[in-house]
């Protein structure tokens, strides 16, 4: 059966706290922290972007999979912050892991579910026998306009999943996608920052589509929430996925391992994939995992995974998601943050 044969995460070392952003805009930090259920977010270093994050996540996935890069027949990177508007991210990943030249590559976008789309395509290709191994990556250096609520959460990180048929560590038991045309969040061509529909992004977008994805896959798999050891949903903040879980009948216990957002922030295309990688770091053979992404615009991709006896053999072969998240973060002040994120207007260098 097809499934994940290697997975890997990457999260930059830099962080900024909600208080640090709130003080600049005269906002009330405690109410933001309570409302968003998040305390801080990751920030990419000045030398990091979706290509570098995707590469490191892919390298970790390859270390766990232990297969030659030359066998990877397809690479898909989903992001809404590809460094180039025109020129793929995936080709750089392919070069680094040695997948060139015999490989299919494409960059994907569908707001925050671009990463799970790559997983969906990679899974489909290996399942059909079209390629031996295929990789799906979700990665972002998310943008939030200065002063906007998104600035408190837009974070950086990514996760990569190598799909294959041999030595599968987590089988894909079922897959289901759900979508509609809903303009809840968007960024127009040539604009720096995304915009959103405020409260419209809740019930009409996130909750409707995650519910659609989860209920759809449960129906397809003839399952119930209690069948799963773990569940992970897209996590734009801490509040949305926990409310969704409660509404759908998932417990805090099922959610807690995959819920990284309180100290990570919203890594957009990387959000539910990173949650899944954190779960895979902990899970045991036989554990079942339900994952449901969400992408504005709007849609969701849901997967059911069953962990195999191969999983414990690979967990320690690369750095774990929580290690990236929890070990010795470096906190930035707002000035350094805006410098790193290139929000300062400067003279052109001569």
């Amino acid at each position: 059966m097809a499934g994940i044969v290697g997975y890997g995460a990457y999260i930059p070392r830099y962080r900024i706290k909600v208080e640090e952003i709130a003080k600049v805009w005269g906002a009330d930090a405690p109410s933001f922290k309570k409302g968003l259920m998040l305390r801080e977010k990751s920030v990419p270093g000045p030398d990091q972007d979706v290509i570098t994050i995707s590469v490191e996540a892919a390298r970790n996935a390859m270390k766990r999979a232990g297969v030659s890069g030359a066998k990877v027949g397809a690479i898909y990177v989903g992001s809404e912050s590809h460094p180039y508007a025109v020129k793929p991210t995936g080709t750089a990943v392919a070069e680094v892991i040695g997948a060139v030249n015999d490989c299919h590559c494409a960059d994907l976008s569908f707001a925050c579910k671009a990463g799970s789309e790559g997983m969906f395509l990679a899974y489909g290709l290996v399942k059909s026998g079209e390629v031996e191994y295929a990789m799906g990556i979700g990665s972002d250096t998310s943008q939030g306009a200065p002063g906007d609520a998104l600035e408190y959460s837009a974070a950086a990180g990514g996760a990569a999943f190598l799909m294959g048929l041999k030595n599968v560590v987590a089988e894909v038991e079922c897959q289901y996608s759900f979508m509609s045309d809903t303009p809840d969040f968007w960024r127009r061509e040539y604009m720096h920052y995304p915009r959103h529909g405020g409260r419209f992004t809740g019930d009409m977008a996130y909750f409707k589509h995650v519910r659609g994805g989860v209920e759809g896959i449960l129906k397809k798999a003839k399952g119930k929430p209690r069948d799963f050891k773990y569940a992970v949903f897209h996590q734009p903040n801490g509040k949305f996925p926990m409310k969704m879980a409660k509404d759908l009948g998932f417990s805090d216990e099922q959610m807690k391992t995959g819920l990284l957002v309180p100290t990570l922030g919203n890594t957009y295309s990387g959000a539910s994939p990173l949650g899944l990688s954190a779960i895979l770091d902990e899970a045991k053979p036989g554990d079942r995992i339900l994952m449901c992404s969400f992408g504005s615009g709007a849609g969701s991709d849901a997967f059911i995974f069953t962990c195999t006896r191969e999983l414990p053999k690979v967990q320690g072969k690369a750095k774990k998601t929580r290690d990236y998240l929890d070990t010795n973060p470096f906190y930035l002040d707002y000035g350094t943050y805006v410098k790193f994120r290139r929000k300062i207007r400067k003279n052109v260098e001569d």
Partner: peptide, 13 residues
């Protein structure tokens, strides 16, 4: 793997 240099704002990385 990191970004080392870029050829200005619109050039290659």
């Amino acid at each position: 793997f990191r970004k080392i240099q870029e050829a200005g704002e619109s050039g290659v990385i």
